[in-house]
Structure formats: C-alpha cells, structure tokens
Design a protein around this nucleic acid. Structure first.
Length: 158
DNA sequence: GCCAACGTTGGC
DNA sequence: GCCAACGTTGGC
C-alpha cells in the first residue's frame, strides 16, 4: 500500500510541536479522540509511516506547525478508563474498548503555515480541513495536497 | 466570549 | 427510528 497522509489537530497548550519534539522517543500517544470518524481513521486506515501534518488549533494563530508520522498500530486509549481523566468514558467496556489511538512521532518543525494562508491558497482548496463547518480533529490529506503544503511551507508568500 | 456547525443523547 | 435538546469544536 502506498503512503497515506493525514492532518492531526492538537492544541499547543496540550501538546505543541515543541512538546512532541521533546517527548520521550519524540513520540506521543494520540489520546483523547472521542469522535468516531476520527477514531476510525486511526483504528482502520492509518499505517505505520503515514505522513502527518501537525496542526495547532484553538490558539492565536492556528495552522500547520510541523511534520510527523504514524508510529504504531492502533491500540486502546488508556484515558477512557481513567476516572480522573477529562477523557474518561464510563460507558466504554473494559473488554471491548470504544476508543483507540496510534502513536505519532516527530519528524520536523516547519514554519507556521497559518490557516488564513491555507484558505487563500487555491491549490489547497480541496482539503477537508478547509471545508465549511469542518471540525474533525483528524482529516485525510491527498498526496497532491501533501505536496502542495510542503511546497508552500518551503516557499512562503512574499 | 460568541456562535455556527455538527455530533450525541434520550424520550417517545 | 425520529428529532429536539444539549454539548462540543474551534475560528474569530
């Protein structure tokens, strides 16, 4: 199977690209996803080595802040069973966990590619992230979109 | 802090 | 299985 690509949103207050770089093994478990569509991407479609656009959300300048990769097969998200966690899900059966995650490994920081610039870029108009009303925290990225983002990262507007 | 969009819940 | 109420996301 050929390489797939994803965009994954993270609040920099929770886990920024710098936090990912500083993490043990430069890898973090992508815990806390509580949306079935986003979960299914991790559970059913991601493969180790898939490319990830690391996106900062809910912050002063939202946008792509770095590149990462899928670093594990899916496994159950431990936070669903932790009563102290904000991600605790009392309805998730121990023997049949509702929520799974993958590990994500740091590749490199990039310049910040702001959401505003992405919206203004015709070659990125097809991205799921930019669809009106889109709120998914994990979205697929086509090879063409991946290439266009990398090109734009390397060639900032003047 | 506002609010539009969207997902989930639960009564019926 | 419908759908109104409610909660969440996330840009602005």
């Amino acid at each position: 199977m050929s390489t797939q690509y994803w965009l994954m949103k993270s609040e920099p207050d929770e886990c920024s690209i710098d936090d990912l770089e500083a993490a043990p093994g430069q890898t973090v478990p992508w815990f806390g996803v509580r949306n079935y569509q986003a979960r299914n991407f991790m559970l059913k479609e991601m493969r180790v080595g898939d490319g990830v656009l690391f996106y900062h959300s809910s912050c002063p300048v939202p946008g792509v802040a770095g590149l990462a990769e899928v670093a594990s097969a899916p496994y159950p998200d431990a936070s669903q069973f932790d009563p102290a966690s904000p991600y605790h899900d009392p309805k998730s059966p121990r023997d049949k966990p509702r929520w799974s995650l993958v590990d994500v490994r740091f590749k490199r920081k990039t310049r910040l590619l702001p959401l505003k610039e992405m919206r203004e870029a015709p070659e990125l108009a097809s991205m799921v992230l930019l669809k009106p009303g889109s709120r998914l925290s994990i979205t697929p990225v086509t090879p063409e979109e991946w290439a266009a983002v990398k090109h734009r990262l390397a060639h900032p507007p003047t």
